[in-house]
Design a protein around this nucleic acid. Structure first.
Length: 296
DNA sequence: TAGGCCATCTGGTCCT
DNA sequence: AGGACCAGATGGCCTA
C-alpha cells in the first residue's frame, strides 16, 4: 500500500544506500581511508565574487547565479583542473580510498538532507493543514509557502491585537466588540472602533491562504505565485474530507474573507472571547479532518 | 505518458 | 583539512 504519511521514509532509498553501494561496487576498500589526503596549500582560488548569503538568497529566489557566471566547471564533464587543493589530493588517492571518501561524503550529505526533512516534517506538524493517514503530506515548497503565509497571518493578528489592547486600555473605548462576530462571515463588516472592516486592519482570516489581504505588497515573494503554488495537493488527497480541507486551504479568499470552515476567527476581536489555544489545536480539530484522526 | 516530487550522488565553494 | 552548504544531474515513484 502506498503509505502517504511516510512517503519519504518509505522510499526505497531510505535503507542506508551505503551498504548497498558498498556491496554493489565494493572493491575491497575496507580499510580506513582517512590517510589518503595529501596536504596542499592553495585554498580555493575561485573568485569570491558573491557572498554565501547573497548566493543563497539569490538561489532561493530562483535566480541561478554565480555558477552560471562562468567559473563553474561543467559538472559532469571533466572537472576543471584548478578547482581546489582537495581535488589534487583526490588524484593521488587510490581507488578504494576515493570510494571510501565518496561514501563518507555521500553519507554526510544524506544525513544532512534527512535532517532537513525532519525539520520540514516538524514544520508540517505545526501548520494548520490537514495531515494524517488519509492525507498526503504537503510538498516541501507548499510547506514553506504555507508557513510563510501562516506567519504573516499570525503577525497581522498579533499586530491587530496589540492595537486593540492599546485602544482599550489606552483610549476610552467603551464599546468593545459589542457581541459582534456573529456567525463569522462578514461579521466584521461593521466598522467598529478598533475593529474596522478595513481589510488592511483585518487582513487575513485564512491561515493557509496567501494573505491576499495581507497585502501582496508585503509579499515580495508572492510574485512567485504563492497562491498557485500552494494549490491543493490535488491528487494527494485520498479522502473526500481531506480533499475538502485541502480545497479550503487552497481556495482563494473567494468572496471576501470568510471564517475558515469552523475555524475560530484568528482576529483579536474573536480571540477575546475565544480560547487562545484555538490557533493551535483548535485550528485543527474543529475544521480539519486530520485532527479527527490525527495520530501523532 | 507527462509532469511533479523526491532522494541521492557529485563537484564546487565557503567556513571553522 | 574537514565539514557544511549549495546546486545541477539523474533516476524512481506516483498521479492525472
Amino acid at each position: 500500500m502506498d503509505s502517504d504519511a511516510s512517503l519519504v521514509s518509505s522510499r526505497p532509498s531510505s535503507p542506508e544506500p551505503d551498504d548497498l553501494f558498498l556491496t554493489a561496487r565494493n572493491k575491497g576498500g575496507g580499510g580506513g581511508f582517512t590517510g589518503g589526503t595529501v596536504s596542499s596549500s592553495t585554498q580555493s582560488d575561485s573568485p569570491p565574487e558573491l557572498s554565501a548569503e547573497l548566493r543563497s538568497a539569490m538561489s532561493a529566489a530562483g535566480v541561478v547565479v554565480v555558477d552560471k557566471l562562468g567559473f563553474k566547471s561543467s559538472s559532469s564533464s571533466s572537472s576543471s583542473s584548478s578547482s581546489s587543493s582537495s581535488k589534487k589530493d583526490k588524484k593521488q588517492m587510490t581507488e578504494p580510498e576515493l570510494q571510501q571518501l565518496r561514501l563518507k561524503i555521500n553519507s554526510r550529505e544524506r544525513k544532512r538532507m534527512h535532517d532537513l526533512n525532519i525539520a520540514m516534517d516538524g514544520l508540517r506538524e505545526v501548520m494548520p493543514y490537514a495531515h494524517g493517514p488519509s492525507v498526503r503530506k504537503l510538498s516541501k515548497i507548499a510547506t514553506l509557502l504555507l508557513a510563510r503565509n501562516y506567519i504573516l497571518m499570525l503577525t497581522n493578528s498579533l499586530e491587530e491585537m496589540k492595537r486593540l489592547v492599546s485602544e482599550i486600555y489606552g483610549g476610552h473605548h467603551a464599546g468593545f466588540h459589542p457581541a459582534a462576530c456573529p456567525g463569522g462571515m462578514g461579521a466584521h463588516s461593521a466598522p467598529l472602533p478598533g475593529h474596522p472592516a478595513h481589510p488592511a486592519s483585518h487582513p487575513v482570516h485564512h491561515p493557509i491562504l496567501p494573505p491576499a489581504a495581507v497585502s501582496s505588497a508585503s509579499l515580495p515573494g508572492s510574485g512567485l505565485s504563492a497562491v498557485s503554488s500552494i494549490r491543493p495537493p490535488h491528487g494527494l488527497l485520498k479522502s473526500p474530507s481531506a480533499a475538502a480541507a485541502a480545497a479550503a486551504a487552497a481556495a482563494p479568499l473567494g468572496s471576501g474573507f470568510q471564517h475558515w470552515g469552523g475555524m475560530p476567527c484568528p482576529c483579536s476581536m474573536c480571540q477575546v472571547s475565544a480560547p487562545p489555544h484555538h490557533h493551535v489545536s483548535g485550528m485543527g480539530t474543529a475544521s480539519l479532518p486530520r485532527l479527527a484522526t490525527d495520530t501523532k
